[in-house]
């Protein structure tokens, strides 16, 4: 009986703070999570770029090896992901700076700018990579 009482008053019966999985997904929540995720991706990306400079300073053999690594299918996928991450993080960073001035918090505005940041990250990346591949064909 004391067990039943402990159970009924135990932590399980208390109202819990809603966890991630019970929230309806909405765009401002997604943009917040994406900002962190792309930030972590760009952390690695910054190390990739630093590695490029180190390879360049190490001489032609190291540089060509690093360039081949970046130009491999996996390397290109990573670089495209980093392009999307950077452009999204940039656009969403501008949102954050605007919020710091106390503007743009209205739900409709925040939703709209959130979708705009995601769209900018994807569309601008695709355009830049199209330009990169066209230029590569024309340049050589």
């Amino acid at each position: 009986m004391s067990d039943a009482k402990a159970q009924s008053r135990g932590p399980q019966d208390r109202p819990m703070s809603p966890h991630l999985q019970v929230w309806r997904w909405h765009v401002t929540m997604a943009t917040s999570i994406l900002h962190r995720a792309t930030g972590m991706a760009l952390y690695v990306g910054a190390l990739v770029v630093a590695g490029w400079v180190v390879a360049l300073a190490s001489g032609p053999e190291a540089f060509d090896a690093y360039r081949a690594l970046l130009g491999s299918p996996l390397g290109l996928v990573v670089l495209f992901g980093l392009t999307v991450s950077f452009l999204y993080h940039l656009a969403n960073g501008v949102r954050h700076l605007v919020w710091d001035f106390g503007k743009g918090f209205e739900p409709k505005t925040a939703d709209m700018t959130g979708w705009a940041a995601i769209a900018f990250g994807v569309v601008a990346s695709v355009l830049i990579w199209i330009i990169a591949f066209l230029g590569m064909g024309a340049g050589q």
Binding site: D64, T83, L90
Partner: peptide
């Protein structure tokens, strides 16, 4: 913001050059 965009722009040209160009 401007430094990153400049780096992205530069990487387009650098993707076409080898060791000497870089």
């Amino acid at each position: 913001a401007p430094l990153g965009l400049w780096a992205l722009y530069s990487s387009l040209a650098l993707s076409r050059t080898g060791f000497d160009g870089a």
